[in-house]
């Protein structure tokens, strides 16, 4: 298989399989999660200021008292790489074109230089976060294989994408194919790893906030 065939494979068969597994896995997991159900709550709801699902969605994005000081890399680095990922994934012209070709919707893109810079910052933040995870005994103790896998599956698409655009390390054709392949691996793994938080984060925060809110406890 030469590199053009490799690229064509990831753009056709590979993409087909990956998107198929992704859609299959996502629907499976989401239906499973949202149909879990809880016992009916017979108690009357209490009210307390700030205790509701909506509050929780936002509050959980802010560091609790003292945590910023004890774990600055997790918070600052975490913010940077999440925002960075959002910008790189949704505002590179080539990505918008992909969404356009799949769903028929598009929006303006950002200049490539901006995306380049954001990608570098994102990569740096991710490396820092990994180093911090390995470095801090408690974090290391809590980390599982799944955590490292999730990190790698997120890191690789950004890295290969950047190298492809910058024509570094490998010829563009091969690098682009590797980039698409890495995204396909991410897509396949997403429903079955903690990466599913992309879709469950807001729902689960709302749910936790909502049941606590009914008991009058802001969380």
């Amino acid at each position: 298989m030469n590199e053009i065939q490799f690229l064509t494979w990831v753009r056709s068969t590979g993409l087909n399989i990956a998107l198929g597994l992704f859609v299959l896995g996502m629907l499976w997991r989401l239906i499973e999660i949202y149909s879990l159900g809880r016992k009916q709550d017979m108690a009357p709801a209490r009210s307390a200021a700030g205790a509701s699902g909506w509050h929780t969605i936002f509050r959980r994005s802010l560091p609790p008292q003292g945590m910023m000081k004890s774990s600055p890399i997790s918070y600052i680095g975490g913010y940077i790489f999440h925002v960075g990922l959002f910008v790189v994934v949704f505002f590179l012209a080539q990505h918008i074109k992909l969404v356009d070709s799949l769903l028929g919707i598009s929006w303006p893109n950002l200049p490539a230089q901006v995306i380049d810079t954001v990608a570098v910052v994102t990569l740096a933040a991710m490396v820092l976060i990994l180093a911090d995870r390995i470095n801090k005994p408690v974090k290391r103790f809590l980390s599982t294989f799944g955590d490292y896998l999730a990190w790698l599956l997120t890191f690789l698409p950004v890295l290969t994408g950047y190298l492809a655009v910058k024509h570094m390390v490998l010829p563009y054709t091969t690098m682009l194919a590797l980039h698409i392949l890495s995204v396909e691996l991410l897509l396949v793994a997403l429903p079955f790893t903690k990466l599913i938080h992309v879709f469950t984060l807001i729902g689960s925060r709302w749910y936790n906030g909502d049941i606590s809110g009914k008991r009058g406890v802001p969380v």
Binding site: L7, L15, N16, G20, F22, L24, Q94, L98, S101
Partner: peptide, 15 residues
């Protein structure tokens, strides 16, 4: 475009 699928998606509906 190089960043878009080379062929129409086949398995998504079935998946």
């Amino acid at each position: 475009a190089l960043s878009t699928p080379a062929n129409p998606l086949k398995y998504v509906a079935a998946a």
